[in-house]
Nucleic acid binder design. Structure first.
Lengths: 141, 141
DNA sequence: CTAAACTTGACCATTTTAGTCAGGTATGTA
DNA sequence: TACATACCTGACTAAAATGGTCAAGTTTAG
C-alpha cells in the first residue's frame, strides 16, 4: 500500500491551483512558495498530472498551469492515480510458491485486503477538489 | 502511511493459529510451513504479538503459541498496532516551517487525511479474527 | 531576442522493508 | 539428567522506495 507525501503534495498543489487559477495561469514557482514544496519536485508531479489530463499549461512569460476541468469533476482518485499512488494493498501474484496466486488458492487474507482497497477507494472517489475548497475557503493563506 | 507485508503476515499467521490451536499450542515452524513465511521473521512478529498480549506461549517440546483471547475479541486494529503498522496518514508536526504544525495553521489537506485515517481505522476496528475465520472455513489448506 | 516559464531525464542520499544469521535461554519428555 | 524442541534477542543487510536535487534543455510572450 502506498500513500506518501507525493500524493499529499499533489493534492495540496491542486487545491492551491484551484484557488488561484481563476484569472491567470498559476506558475509552479508561486505554488512552491505558498505550499513550501520544492520547485523541482513539483515539476515532476505536474508532469504526471498533465499526462493524465488533470491540468493544462501555458508556456512563456506569465505562463503557468490551470485545471483542465471544474474542481467538482476532479476526484481524489484521479489525482492519486495520476501520481502513481495506486492504493494497492496486496500483490499476491508474485508468490505463486505458496498459496496465493489470485485464483483458486487465495491466501487466507486475500479477500480482506480486497475489501479494504475498495473501502479506501470509495472514500477517494467521493471526494472532489471542490469538497476540499469548501472546507478551506475561510482560511487565510 | 504504512500497510505492508509485515502486517499482512501477522494477520495470516493469526488466522492460521486460530484454526489450529484448538487442542494443542501451535509451533511457529508449522505456521511457517503452512503459510510460507520465514521462521525467523515469524519470531520477530510473534515477539511483538506476545508483548501486546495477543498470543501466549508454552515452551519445551510440544510447545508453541495460542491466542490469549477469543477470535471475536481480537480486532485487526489490535494486530496491526502490535506490529507497528500505525496507519498514520500524516505527520505534519515536523515541517513547522511552512503551514502545518497541527494547530492554527493546518496545511490545506490536513483535515482530509484525518478523515481518511478515521475511515480506515473504522474498518479495522470492525473486523475481528472471527470474521476472517468465517470467510475461510470452507477452504482446504 | 531574451527572460520567464515549462520539460525531460539522470542522478542520489536516506530511510524503510523484509528479511537473515548467530547466538542464546527455557522446558517437557524420555 | 540429557537433549531435542521450542521460544527469545539483537545485530546485520540487500533491495526497494522515498523524497528529493541537478543539469540541460525547449517554448513563447513581450
Amino acid at each position: 500500500m502506498k500513500l506518501t507525501s507525493k500524493g499529499r503534495y499533489a493534492v495540496m498543489a491542486l487545491v492551491d491551483l484551484a484557488r488561484f487559477d481563476t484569472i491567470n495561469p498559476v506558475s509552479l514557482r508561486d505554488i512552491s512558495l505558498r505550499q513550501g514544496i520544492s520547485l523541482d519536485y513539483l515539476e515532476q508531479i505536474f508532469s504526471k498530472l498533465k499526462k493524465n489530463h488533470i491540468v493544462k499549461s501555458t508556456r512563456g512569460t506569465q505562463g503557468g498551469y490551470f485545471l483542465s476541468k471544474k474542481p467538482n469533476e476532479i476526484k481524489l482518485t484521479n489525482i492519486l492515480n495520476a501520481v502513481d499512488e495506486k492504493v494497492k494493498t496486496v500483490q499476491c501474484k508474485k508468490d505463486s510458491k505458496k498459496g496465493c496466486n489470485g485464483k483458486a488458492t487465495k491466501c487466507i487474507t486475500h479477500n480482506l485486503w480486497d475489501e479494504l482497497e475498495t473501502h479506501i477507494n470509495t472514500f477517494f472517489e467521493k471526494k472532489s477538489l471542490q469538497d476540499l475548497l469548501k472546507n478551506n475557503s475561510e482560511w487565510v493563506n
